[in-house]
């Protein structure tokens, strides 16, 4: 989704000096707004329940933050639900968010791997074959203006009707979504060696495969990692949406859907937080691998 960060790796210059304090302040401000919003949004229902009884502001506050099915649950309610479903429930149970998170994660990772493979292959083809560049590249871009995510449920249902169920349909949606940033990033990366370097390879009489492995591929690695970070995030979104069609049994998307059917807002928010944590962890992992790989390749950091 954040395709903005494809392109030059580390393109966005972030002011690095002392980020901890501002981030903490902003986070606190968001929490404060959330609590206030919880009062504001839940108050009508709470007051409605009081009826004619007299009530105080403290009472209203306490009740608005501890409703059973709040319009907006307070952060601590979500935290309690997370604690209950993540740590207090056996991971094999269908009530455990770890179980649902794992289902989503496995589809995400499978789709991510397939998409990465497809994306790299397409990029290599586009860079080396002229006819592919002129004919395929515009369609790679057009393919992303199609709201594929919206037909994800159809893909799942249709593939299910021919016997393909479980992991694969979701992974295919993830794959379709995440091959794009990889192709775009890798085409840029494989083309990034400058003319001098390619001409040097030429004077050394390097074969095309030598040029690829010793010049183009190493040059493209930083671009690859920038794309991978975007791709894994989209891949997760694809897996979650793929779990939304009716009949989906497990996964974060199924939790969202069942929460919305039964009005369990706390459950929806807990699933959302779980999805966000997954996204954060996956991106952090790629960051780590990126740092290790680039250091091993002798990049100056």
């Amino acid at each position: 989704m954040a395709a903005a960060s494809i392109g030059r790796p580390s393109g966005i210059a972030t002011p690095r000096s002392g980020r901890a304090l501002p981030v903490a302040v902003v986070t606190l401000a968001i929490l404060l707004v959330w609590y206030l919003g919880a009062i504001w949004l839940n108050a009508p229902q709470v007051i409605d329940r009081y009826g004619d009884q007299p009530w105080t502001w403290q009472q209203l506050m306490a009740d608005a933050w501890s409703m059973d099915r709040p319009v907006l649950p307070a952060p601590h309610q979500v935290a309690v639900e997370l604690n209950r479903t993540v740590f207090q429930t056996a991971v094999t149970s269908k009530r455990s968010l770890v179980y649902h998170g794992w289902i989503t994660l496995s589809a995400t990772l499978l789709g991510f791997m397939l998409g990465t493979l497809l994306g790299i292959l397409l990029a290599v083809g586009i860079v080396h074959v002229r006819a592919l560049e002129t004919s395929l590249m515009p369609w790679v871009i057009t393919s992303q203006t199609i709201p594929i995510l919206a037909i994800a449920p159809m893909v799942v249902v249709v593939l299910g009707s021919v016997g393909l169920t479980g992991l694969l349909p979701k992974a295919l949606i993830s794959m379709y979504l995440c091959f794009f940033p990889i192709t775009i990033g890798m085409v840029k990366g494989l083309r990034s060696p400058d003319v001098l370097a390619t001409e040097l390879m030429h004077t050394w009489n390097a074969t095309p495969s030598q040029v690829f492995w010793k010049l183009r591929w190493p040059a493209a690695v930083p671009y690859l990692f920038a794309s991978l970070k975007v791709a894994i995030a989209i891949s997760l979104v694809g897996a979650i949406v793929g779990e939304m069609p009716t009949g989906a049994q497990a996964g974060i998307g199924a939790r969202l859907l069942s929460g919305s059917y039964y009005g369990q807002t706390v459950q929806i928010w807990a699933a959302l937080v779980m999805g966000s944590v997954l996204a954060g962890v996956l991106i952090a992992l790629i960051n780590l691998v990126e740092r290790l790989t680039l250091r091993a390749m002798g990049a100056q950091t």
């Binding site: 002011p15 902003v26 999805g275």
Partner: peptide, 29 residues
């Protein structure tokens, strides 16, 4: 600059999150 330093990392994080999940909440609201 203070807000910038505080909001940019959070904004970057949020752009990577599966925001689509707020859809059921918005439908309720």
């Amino acid at each position: 600059p203070f807000l910038q330093r505080g909001l940019l990392p959070i904004g970057n994080l949020v752009s990577a999150l599966p925001i689509i999940g707020v859809a059921p909440i918005m439908v309720m609201w």
